[in-house]
């Protein structure tokens, strides 16, 4: 394993040191592992807090700032943050209008955010939650942990964050956040596994001509292994899975996401195929993101996330945002 780290034990802390040094618009509490907007709490504004395991950068810390999150809690690599950390973030961004937790649907994230919500409530902070579960590779069932939360977290944070920035009450911010999640779907493909610093070797082995279909964002294997093939066909597999679950039509917000190790050139090749697929279905890529937004350390591959837009969602997506990873209009 060759990684640009100092010590396996200080990876998260050293990352936060870098974030603090690179982004003076953020206030980074390195000891408690929280990234705050510098001006938090904003009186009268609903606070947005998200968090999850580290290793998905820029999610979530890269989305802290004007028009998006007020704080992010990075856990250890691929491990959810702990309740104390989330409570501290929640009380730290509470401007009196309540706080929204944006939680990706993983057992660990759900449990730790639930505990934190109860503890925050004890401290007099009103907390509501939007659960993100957009990954169509996982068949939903009452008897399982349900779908994973992946790329739609970026959409929820941006759109709910814009509404909160405009001064909407917590109930409205929750409503729009849930609507974004309900209208979003994702599917991921890996060409290689990722290597966590602690494990020091890839989490699974793929042969030279093998790929994993339906992967999550934690280096866990996907649902099936298949033979590698050209980008056009891989995109068709991903888009068919999305379209089967929620037929694509009309104006669509589309993200082609790298998993951390994929050259941008290849992501554009993928995007061209995604745009062509949408056209075939009578849909348009009305708003677009291409790049590394929800990563899995050094994994090679891509994921596609779509969201069926409404006028309201489009307007909120277009609203000004100023964070390390997304910025426009300001």
């Amino acid at each position: 394993m060759k990684k640009l780290i100092n010590d396996v034990g200080s990876v998260v802390t050293d990352t936060l040191r870098g974030v603090a040094a690179a982004h003076p618009s953020l206030r980074v509490d390195i000891e408690n592992k929280i990234i705050f907007r510098r001006d938090a709490p904003r009186p009268g504004k609903v606070g947005l807090v998200s968090g999850g395991g580290s290793g998905h950068e820029p999610l979530h810390g890269g989305y802290v700032g004007y028009g998006m999150l007020d704080a992010a809690c990075p856990g250890e690599i691929f491990t959810s943050p702990v309740p104390d950390q989330i409570v501290r973030a929640t009380t730290g961004v509470n401007g009196g209008a309540g706080v929204l937790h944006v939680v990706k649907n993983y057992t660990g994230d759900v449990l730790n955010f639930e505990m934190a919500a109860e503890l925050s409530d004890d401290e007099g902070v009103e907390v509501a939650r939007v659960l993100v579960d957009d990954d169509v590779a996982v068949r939903d069932s009452l008897y399982t942990a349900g779908r994973r939360g992946t790329g739609a977290a970026v959409f929820v944070e941006k759109i709910a964050g814009a509404l909160a920035e405009a001064g909407a009450p917590l109930t409205e911010v929750v409503r729009v956040g849930r609507e974004v999640n309900d209208r979003s779907r994702s599917f991921g493909v890996a060409l290689s596994a990722c290597t966590t610093p602690a494990a020091g070797r890839p989490t699974f082995e793929l042969g030279e001509r093998e790929i994993e279909l339906g992967i999550g964002i934690h280096g866990e294997p996907g649902r099936t292994r298949a033979a590698h093939r050209e980008a056009r066909e891989l995109v068709r597999i991903a888009m068919d899975a999305i379209d089967d679950d929620l037929p694509l039509s009309g104006e669509t917000l589309v993200m082609v996401n790298g998993m951390g190790g994929t050259p941008l050139m290849e992501l554009y090749i993928v995007f061209a195929e995604v745009a062509a697929y949408l056209k075939e279905k009578g849909a348009t890529a009305a708003r677009r993101l291409v790049g590394n937004h929800v990563t899995s350390l050094d994994m090679l591959g891509f994921s596609v996330t779509t969201c069926a837009l409404t006028d309201e969602l489009t307007r909120l997506w277009d609203a000004p945002v100023e964070t390390p990873a997304l910025r426009w209009g300001r």
């Binding site: 395991g53 856990g75 250890e76 491990t79 959810s80 943050p81 702990v82 309740p83 104390d84 993983y106 057992t107 660990g108 449990l111 730790n112 505990m115």
Partner: peptide, 12 residues
């Protein structure tokens, strides 16, 4: 364990 571990195993 709840305060320090995170993930599902910490709370459980």
């Amino acid at each position: 364990l709840i305060r320090k571990v995170g993930g599902a195993s910490g709370p459980l």
